[in-house]
Simulated assay, not measured.
Amino acid sequence: MTGATNPLGEFLRARRELVTPEQAGIPVVGVRRVAGLRREEVAMLSGISSEYYLRLEQGRYRNPSVQVLEAIARVLQLDEETTAYLLGLVVAQPHVARRRRPARETVPGSLRAFVDGLGTPAFIEGRYLDVLAANPLAAALSPRLVVGANRLRDVFLDAEERALFVDWEAATEGLVASFRQSVGTSIDDPRCVELVGQLSIASPRFQRLWGRHDIGGRRGALMRFDHPVVGEINLHREKLVPAEAQNLTVAIYHADAGSPDADKLALLAASVQAVVGS
């Protein structure tokens, strides 16, 4: 289900199906029976033979040059992050034997204190999008933003968490792309296999998005929430990778100064203070 035996071929097939002939500048004549580009079209536009490209997709040739991969990336219209991921699939091939469960993720005390001291919702997630630390204002934004929760499971499988997002489909696209970027080429390690398997069975939406091989999500975004206390609130989300713990990501939500959203965020903060002071 994860495509661990041929990650390069799985990636190329998935991304090829997302590029239309029109986007690639190919005239469409008659009825096409494939989604996206044909193999021979990718090969032609990349300047390589059809047989060579076929071997890449089938996993029969696993050591293409960087120049070939970059040419294919241009045809598939990959952005910088996704191109880096494609290159990493080949670079990572010698390490596929490393399948031990990763060590338990921990948050440095200084980083935890930083998040706790922020006057805006913030939390720390690990490589598999587990919530490892969260401040009280994050939990006020969503009760699922607490230590021990997993963002993938909650956003895809928890009905209350889904209802929190005004545009749940856009949120799930970004979440899966972020997960792929976070795990990188280690999609065959036990925790990743477990998560992908469970979510693919429980959520057809996750299964479709995982099959797209989108990469990204560690960037700023405007998140729209339908909060049960303050109503619709629009918050900017930033994702930061700390220098001292690059397997972790700090997610911070903030509102435009002086906006109605800032007033609503202040109301949430006041409710947190009231609970703490009671």
Results as ranks from 00 to 15, higher is better:
residue 201 I to S: 06
residue 112 R to Y: 00
residue 83 T to R: 03
residue 86 L to I: 01
residue 91 V to A: 14
residue 160 E to A: 15
residue 201 I to A: 09
residue 122 A to G: 15
residue 184 G to S: 06
residue 113 A to C: 07
residue 134 A to W: 06
residue 137 L to I: 15
residue 145 L to E: 08
residue 159 A to W: 12
residue 85 Y to V: 01
residue 130 D to F: 15
residue 195 L to F: 04
residue 146 V to G: 09
residue 130 D to T: 12
residue 225 F to A: 04
residue 153 R to C: 12
residue 226 D to Q: 06
residue 169 E to K: 09
residue 83 T to F: 00
residue 224 R to N: 07
residue 177 A to D: 04
residue 87 L to E: 07
residue 156 F to H: 08
residue 188 D to N: 06
residue 161 E to S: 15
residue 97 A to W: 08
residue 142 S to Q: 11
residue 153 R to D: 10
residue 204 P to G: 03
residue 211 G to F: 02
residue 211 G to H: 01
residue 118 L to A: 15
residue 160 E to H: 14
residue 92 A to Q: 04
residue 154 D to E: 15
residue 190 P to F: 01
residue 221 A to G: 08
residue 169 E to P: 07
residue 181 Q to E: 05
residue 175 L to C: 03
residue 145 L to V: 13
residue 110 S to P: 03
residue 138 A to V: 13
residue 143 P to T: 13
residue 181 Q to W: 08
residue 139 A to D: 12
residue 114 F to L: 13
residue 126 G to H: 11
residue 220 G to V: 04
residue 152 L to G: 03
residue 225 F to S: 07
residue 164 L to I: 12
residue 126 G to R: 08
residue 187 I to Y: 00
residue 83 T to K: 01
residue 214 D to A: 14
residue 126 G to Q: 08
residue 171 A to H: 12
residue 90 V to M: 01
residue 198 Q to N: 04
residue 95 H to S: 07
residue 125 E to D: 15
residue 182 S to Y: 00
residue 200 S to R: 00
residue 154 D to Q: 15
residue 157 L to V: 04
residue 187 I to R: 02
residue 134 A to Q: 10
residue 151 R to G: 08
residue 94 P to D: 00
residue 143 P to Q: 15
residue 123 F to G: 13
residue 87 L to Q: 02
residue 124 I to S: 11
residue 222 L to Y: 09
residue 172 T to Y: 02
residue 177 A to Q: 05
residue 174 G to K: 04
residue 180 R to D: 01
residue 96 V to L: 13
residue 191 R to P: 05
residue 113 A to I: 07
residue 219 R to Q: 09
residue 98 R to Y: 10
residue 148 G to Q: 09
residue 106 T to N: 05
residue 138 A to I: 14
residue 216 G to R: 00
residue 143 P to K: 14
residue 218 R to G: 02
residue 134 A to K: 07
residue 152 L to V: 05
residue 131 V to G: 09
residue 225 F to K: 03
residue 127 R to L: 15
residue 219 R to V: 11
residue 212 R to M: 11
residue 90 V to W: 00
residue 171 A to L: 09
residue 217 G to P: 05
residue 106 T to R: 13
residue 225 F to V: 04
residue 196 V to A: 01
residue 173 E to G: 10
residue 90 V to N: 02
residue 207 Q to S: 13
residue 107 V to Q: 00
residue 193 V to T: 02
residue 170 A to C: 14
residue 199 L to G: 01
residue 222 L to W: 06
residue 190 P to I: 01
residue 184 G to H: 03
residue 110 S to A: 10
residue 161 E to G: 12
residue 103 A to K: 05
residue 210 W to A: 02
residue 189 D to L: 07
residue 82 T to N: 04
residue 111 L to G: 07
residue 137 L to Q: 12
residue 185 T to C: 03
residue 136 P to E: 10
residue 194 E to R: 03
residue 185 T to S: 05
residue 203 S to A: 04
residue 147 V to N: 10
residue 173 E to A: 13
residue 213 H to I: 03
residue 85 Y to D: 03
residue 91 V to C: 04
